[in-house]
Amino acid sequence: MERRSFLKGFGVAAACAVALPHVASAADEKKVVGPNEMKFETAVAAITGGKALVASSKVKMEAPEIAENGAVVPVKVTVESPMTQKEYVKAIHVLASKNGNVRCANIYLTPANGEAFFGTRVKLGGTQDVVAIAEMSDGSFLTAKQNVKVTIGGCG
């Protein structure tokens, strides 16, 4: 699909931080780079500081398997934790693995939350994994992901 017709077709309903493959090619002078471009690996390394990510059923991610509109994709993350001063979830990080800037939100929680929960709506430029990383108070990092098929990208 040509970029122009793609943009026209979708209108101005939404914008997103996703570099379309043909836009990102070096030959294309009109390459558009968002202000906070970041690759998935870089973002994960920045969060974990090189520590291992452990896929865990303690992290529950709710996102649709198929999203008709990539501009508004509901995402909910719940992490099992007693949320006491001793043991709680320090932070939840939500990443969209293939967006231009993969980072969506970092949520720094406290025991006052009572429950480790975060809900939001994200823009997805195309079919990709939405990843949640939970930073626990003991220093470990748990993760869960959900693949979301996007029929209309969140760009335009």
């Binding site: 939404a14 969506c104 939001t120 823009k123």
Partner: peptide, 11 residues
């Protein structure tokens, strides 16, 4: 709770 967020959140 403190949140740091980016442009990937919906309008």
């Amino acid at each position: 709770t403190k949140m740091v967020i980016w442009e990937s959140l919906s309008v």
